[in-house]
């Protein structure tokens, strides 16, 4: 094991019990743990390499606790993040309100962080359409309004989960490439983009 190198910091945000941890579990360990709900304590970090074209990009994923108790700490988790997966529970309208809160927070503090709006527990909707509380198009409209990408996933079946993280990695790769070409230009007034190297290196 060598020192950890992380290309892009990704942060999971959202109300408690919307399924942030399950999403990470599904993506990283390809599993869905059934059992009593266990909330995350503080935050959990996991690094995951992902193939984009010919390149390998390592995502450093911060799975944060949804509990209000840790809200004051959340800044350290999303600071410098290149991507934020803002989760809401498709069957719980209050979780969408919370998602709006996180979006606002990110817009205010992290202008370089790309937002991925993610409706979770899609399998429940598939089983019974009447439990849906957040309309697909409403969420889609909101996503467009804030310039975010929008996904509906199920960690239980795995539906759309890999697609979500793949999109993050590809977007990162594209923008990283953009910065690179910008850097070679002659723009003397270019802003110093400390977020380019993302996460861990800025302390």
């Amino acid at each position: 094991m060598s020192a950890m190198r992380v290309d892009a910091k990704v942060v999971m945000l959202g109300k408690e019990s919307v399924g942030k941890t399950s999403l990470v579990e599904r993506y990283v360990h390809h599993r869905f743990l059934v059992g009593p709900y266990q909330n995350t304590i503080g935050a959990a970090f996991v690094a995951k390499p992902i193939q984009v074209g010919e390149k390998v990009i390592t995502l450093g994923i911060w799975d944060t606790a949804g509990s209000e108790r840790y809200e004051a700490m959340s800044r350290i988790y999303y600071r410098g993040a290149r991507a934020a997966i803002v989760c809401y529970d498709l069957t719980d309208s209050s979780s969408f309100q919370r998602a709006r809160f996180w979006v606002k927070e990110l817009q205010n503090c992290e202008e370089f962080c790309k937002i991925y709006l993610c409706g979770t527990k899609n399998d429940l909707i598939m089983a019974d359409r009447s439990v849906r509380q957040i309309d697909y198009h409403d969420a889609q409209d909101f996503a467009e309004e804030i310039g975010a990408r929008h996904f509906e996933t199920s960690s239980k079946t795995g539906s759309n989960v890999d697609e979500l993280f793949q999109a993050i990695a590809e977007d990162y790769n594209d923008t990283a490439f953009q910065y690179m070409t910008e850097d070679t230009g002659v723009d003397l007034g270019q802003r110093k983009d400390s977020y380019f190297y993302s996460c861990c290196h800025n302390n």
């Binding site: 990470v24 990283v28 266990q38 304590i41 503080g42 935050a43 959990a44 970090f45 996991v46």
Partner: peptide
């Protein structure tokens, strides 16, 4: 008690106040 009660730390590296 914190460590023993939670499977949360099995998921990745935990960081908590």
């Amino acid at each position: 008690n914190l460590v023993g009660s939670s499977s949360s730390f099995r998921e990745g590296e935990g960081w908590t106040p």
